[in-house]
Design a protein around this nucleic acid. Structure first.
Length: 197
DNA sequence: CGGAAGATTTCT
DNA sequence: GAAATCTTCCGA
């Protein structure tokens, strides 16, 4: 079952927690890939010094963040890797959830081909890696997650999930915001990206 | 218009 | 521990 618009129209922290255990699906010409979300981070727009939308105009790269929840915010980092975010909350509230790690579910051969590795644990354990494995790039920027190409769905089997909150990764420049516990992971899941502080 | 820096990954 | 590599943003 595909998650509906209402799911995304809440604050980013609530959505980030609820996204754990959901499945990200991307249908392409090459085939379909699915991954179980095991790690997320919330970025709370104007209240968060680490967010892209904290100090920039509601135009350019962050434009889509100001839409209502349920859209894909894709950006290129360090000139080499894409990161996928999910826009949350209402119109004109620039809050997003960064997807940091997935557990591969479907289309694993395709993921291996895209990533150039056979190691399951290495396919999606990081923001740049999961985008490469899922075939996500700037063409997906602003895509509606309530449509049928790139979307999220409930996991086929719902196992009980234990959520762990921790500090976010690689945002030391963000002042006091770097200590906010807005990173969420599934406890003891081995597909979570390895960097832990 | 030019420069600096970044939600990262990979190899040494 | 450092390089790879390019878009975006800010200051002049």
């Amino acid at each position: 079952m595909i998650l509906n618009r209402e799911f995304y129209q809440r604050d980013a922290v609530a959505v980030a927690k609820d996204l754990l255990g959901k499945v990200l699906v991307h249908e392409t010409n090459e085939g379909i890939t699915k991954g179980l979300i095991v790690e997320t981070e919330a970025y709370m727009g104007t209240k968060d010094a680490a967010a892209h939308s904290y100090k920039s105009n509601p135009s350019g790269r962050t434009n889509v963040q100001y839409k209502e929840g349920g859209y894909a915010y894709i950006y290129l980092i360090y000139g080499m890797y894409y990161c996928m975010n999910i826009v949350t909350n209402e119109i004109n509230i620039p809050e997003v959830v960064l997807l940091r790690a997935l557990e591969p579910v479907d289309g694993i051969e395709l993921m291996k081909k895209r990533r150039g590795t056979d190691k399951m644990i290495n396919l999606c354990s990081g923001p740049g890696k999961l985008c490469a494995a899922m075939g996500i790039n700037k063409d997906n920027y602003g895509m509606d997650l309530c449509s049928n190409q790139l979307y999220l769905e409930e996991a086929a089997v719902k196992n009980p999930i234990e959520v762990v909150a921790s500090k976010r990764i690689n945002i030391d420049y963000a002042g006091e915001a770097k200590d906010y516990l807005w990173r969420f992971t599934i406890k003891d899941n081995k597909f979570v990206s390895v960097k832990v502080k």
